[in-house]
Design a protein around this nucleic acid. Structure first.
Lengths: 238, 238
DNA sequence: CCCCAACGGGGGACGCCGTTCGCAGTTGGT
DNA sequence: ACCAACTGCGAACGGCGTCCCCCGTTGGGG
């Protein structure tokens, strides 16, 4: 029935009938807990239902499809986003926003996977977006520029964390121990370095002093921020 | 058996026994075709096997798990990456690299989903990485700087396209027509704009002249490139 | 040259999945 | 007090990833 609309524009319960035993919030919390501890692929309707002490079919009274459950999960973790305090300096504020986004995804790695399936716009997500907009807004930027700045920064952060998590994900899914995994990786890496088909790759890999991932994010972020704050003064009209 | 290693370090066929009817390449091509025409979720072992005229169990002679099939798919599309010609100008070359990455993912939207599950390092992927490294390398950058530059640019592009595709994905998965979808969206959007809980959001949304997605990518990319090429002259030692 | 160990093909089964149907029990507006 | 609107859910359906096990094929060592 209510299948044809976003979950957020449907009321949580009808006017008549018995009071529902559960809420969207508790269901989302159960799903988030399972995803955090066992991975997204462990989140099934039956497992979530069992976790709140309900039958599998009962979940469909709250959610019209599993994708709706994903929406609930994404909005649930958006509630954890810390408030952002203005410092008056655009660069500092942008950096704070970037770090908030990164720590959020690192806390719940499955967010990177799910957010690509559907954009979530639940109440908590909106609150988080509002706080981000309020943080960046007013720094001598037009509405279009504010939008572009947030979009660009978010793209960098999500893209970076996406790549950052891929390796952990692969390890977790493979079911190997960390030792087995790094061994398999290293073994294959040896077939790359020194391979005459990949001269530039081998040279860069051997020359580079692999920096910690933490530094790497910080340095990439610094470059992006350079471009974003510089645009304000250069002001290219188009 | 061979389950404990990456698929790329296992030989495609053993020494003895009959010659396999299929190849990793044909299997990957079948899976890519299904994903392109019906979406990733339509890629099942049975469907892929049927598409090449084989039984489902036979696939496990080529691939030890479905994740391995994903690796094959990702590497198959990496083979489509166009070669990159040096222009001598770093900014131009970086932009070309960014566009190659973006069109690749737009051609096969499911790449954005799968690449988050596991990093693929098949032969075609390596060839593509080599060409990218060769394009950027030598522009007066250290190995660490080259690595950081490519990482940062890739993060922006994948992050941007990820968000760009999320909406299309959601529409496709919902099974609605485009009209139904935009209607559902617009209806919910009306509950946001004007809501006193989101003052900044409403102001920005009403003030902004929504630019085309194409322009938006180009402008964001320009900002990122600004930051990346500026770093070369500023040369902050750390 | 021939034989048998090592391999490829695949039918059938197992356990889990998302989702639907139908029915029994409960509630609140009229 | 009634009954329409609602909730809870056992059972079932079709599809999934994966594995077992048996069969047929093949090619290198004797």
């Amino acid at each position: 029935m209510g299948t044809e609309t976003l979950i957020w524009s449907r009321p949580e319960r009808g006017a008549r009938g018995p009071r529902p035993t559960h809420t969207r919030t508790t269901i989302a919390a159960a799903a988030v807990h399972i995803a955090d501890t066992e991975g997204v692929e462990a989140v099934s309707m039956r497992r979530v239902a069992a976790h709140i002490g309900a039958g599998a079919a009962s979940l469909y009274r709250y959610v019209s499809t599993k994708d709706d459950l994903y929406d609930l999960m994404l909005d649930a973790v958006a509630a954890e986003d810390a408030p952002l305090a203005r410092t008056g300096d655009l660069r500092t504020d942008l950096a704070a926003l970037a770090h908030r986004q990164r720590t959020g995804v690192l806390r719940h790695p499955w967010v990177a996977t799910l957010s690509g399936l559907r954009p979530s716009f639940g109440p908590n997500t909106l609150r988080s977006m509002e706080s981000a907009a309020a943080l960046i807004d007013g720094h001598d930027l037009t509405a279009n520029e504010t939008l572009l700045t947030i979009e660009t920064l978010t793209a960098f952060v999500t893209g970076y964390v996406h790549a950052e998590l891929a390796e952990h994900e692969a390890n977790r899914r493979s079911g190997m121990t960390v030792d087995q995994w790094t061994e398999a990786r290293a073994e294959y890496g040896r077939t790359i370095i020194g391979n005459p088909d990949f001269p530039t790759l081998t040279r860069i890999m051997t020359e580079a002093t692999a920096p910690l991932a933490e530094d790497s994010f910080e340095q990439g972020l610094a470059r992006v921020l350079d471009g974003l704050v510089a645009a304000r003064t250069t002001r290219c009209s188009r």
